[in-house]
Amino acid sequence: MRERGLGISEIAEQLARSPWAISREIRRNMLEHDKGICDASLAHHRSRQRAGRPRRPRFRLDAVLRAEVQA
């Protein structure tokens, strides 16, 4: 949306989020060497790195849940 020239307020309105939250996420996921270009896949990767804890593969650990979902 930023690439299409939309402002923070317009993005926030379309996503039903506060402008503050949109601004924070853009700031948090862009580094100085990104030269002001927001890359969604890179931002997602950076947020996963910051998560600090790996996600557990629920289906692999819970055989009953796996069987229920497969059924």
Rank of each mutant, 00 (worst) to 15 (best):
R46D: 08
E3W: 03
E3C: 12
A63M: 13
P54A: 11
R46E: 05
A40S: 10
A63N: 11
R24T: 11
H33Q: 10
A43M: 08
L15A: 14
E10H: 06
R27V: 05
R55E: 11
S47D: 11
S41H: 06
G5F: 02
R46V: 05
I37A: 13
S9T: 10
G52Y: 01
R4T: 07
E68C: 13
L15W: 05
A63E: 15
M30P: 00
G36S: 11
D62G: 06
E68L: 14
R50L: 09
V69L: 12
L6H: 02
S47Y: 02
R46N: 07
R2M: 04
V69N: 01
A43T: 01
A71T: 09
L6A: 08
R28P: 00
L65Q: 13
H44D: 06
R66A: 15
H45Q: 14
N29M: 04
E25F: 05
L42M: 15
R24D: 08
H44L: 08
M30F: 01
R53I: 08
E13H: 10
I8T: 15
A40H: 05
A67P: 04
W20M: 08
R46T: 04
I37V: 15
R46L: 12
L65K: 14
A67R: 12
P57I: 09
Q49R: 15
H44W: 07
R27F: 03
R4N: 11
